[in-house]
Computed example of a mutant assay.
Amino acid sequence: MTATAEVVIPTPDVSDDALATVTAALAEHAERHDRTGEVPWDGLRIVHEAGLLTATVGAAHGGPALGLVDTARVLVALGEGDPSVALIVANTLHTHAGQAAAPHWPEDLYADLLRRGLEGPAPVNAIRAEPELGAPARGGLPATTLTATADGWTLSGRKSYATGGEALAYHVVWAVTDEPEPRVGHVLVPGDASGITWIETWDHLGLRASNTHDVVYDQTPVRADAFVEIPRGDDGVYRDPAATPGIQSFWHPALYVGAARASRSAFVAYARDRVPTALGAPIATTERIQAVAGEIETQVAQAEALLFGTLARAEAGDLSALTPQLGVLKGAIARAVVAAASTAVEALGNPGLSRHHSLERHLRDVLCVRVHPPQLDAAQIAAGRRVLGV
């Protein structure tokens, strides 16, 4: 039994009704969070109280160990309510699932994370990108450095796109040691450690409340056992693990499927309520709007089928056959959710682009799906080389 097995994590209710309740509660705060850009504490508390922030904690650590499909269902529901909250949650669930699959945290540090998660929202995120390097999925090594001390390390450097911001209970930071033979890996840093400064750089088109700011580490003290080296490739080269999508990477597109659902709902509500004087009836009664609604439904259905079909096959043991196609499947989901929201906005014209209508926000949010690795061009090149045998 591990030390963390003494912590009992409640099993959340992930029935359709329970998730719909969480979606509605998040939606009540989503517009305000989007406008202020502040840490979405109201949304995070809603998710925490529903027990969803720790849903993927492994059974060995006293958790519910929620599976692939149900975790995606959770994230679709959260994305439909507030995608900014859903992104922070997705990163947290991914970290817990990774620990369940291959334990690598020191037991007392992970137990501390779980205890924080019982007391309140305790997000955690892998922080990799840097201002000069960009997203490491394209290659390269970090400039963020670990320097050995008598009792551990100090961490120094600047990171970009650190989703979660000051809400993070732990940072999982991609860094390189300054040893004679440098090693690359992730270091576990409590969010309240000294030497951490947040730079409010996030002024983005979408997911504005995700607090994906820059963060600076200035000789931040880190325990010796908090550094975990990542595996080298067969050629001896370090590569960021996010560059090769695993099945759990599908939890990111899941939240955008939720945002596409929200855009569908917003379009339907407008079409039912809008009664032009010349028509004398809701525009929903016209064949043009009915055709648009059908196109939106087509795109949402396609995204859902790709998402849940892929995860169901993985849970059924078909992951090895799926793995080469994961990148292009994620890209296809991205295309579908963007098309769903774009179609809705295009059909409504100015009202769909007004900040007085939620469709504008849904479109901005779904556009962010394209930035998650692997990006579509890289996935298609890899797929093309595979099928061509070159």
Rank of each mutant, 00 (worst) to 15 (best):
Y217V: 03
Y217I: 04
Y217P: 11
Y217A: 09
D218H: 07
Q219G: 10
P221R: 00
V222R: 12
R223F: 05
A224R: 06
A224Y: 04
A224S: 13
D225T: 01
F227K: 09
F227M: 00
V228Y: 01
E229M: 10
E229Y: 13
I230N: 01
P231F: 06
G233K: 11
D234F: 11
D235R: 15
D235I: 04
G236P: 00
G236H: 13
V237L: 15
R239G: 06
D240F: 00
A242K: 06
A243L: 06
P245V: 08
G246T: 07
F250M: 12
F250Q: 07
W251N: 02
W251K: 05
H252T: 13
A254L: 02
L255N: 10
L255F: 10
Y256V: 09
Y256T: 07
Y256G: 00
Y256L: 02
V257L: 10
A259L: 07
A259Y: 02
A260T: 08
R261F: 00
R261Q: 02
A262L: 04
S263W: 09
S263C: 09
R264D: 08
S265Y: 03
A266L: 09
V268M: 13
V268K: 03
V268T: 10
Y270K: 07
D273S: 14
R274Q: 15
V275H: 13
P276K: 05
P276I: 10
P276H: 08
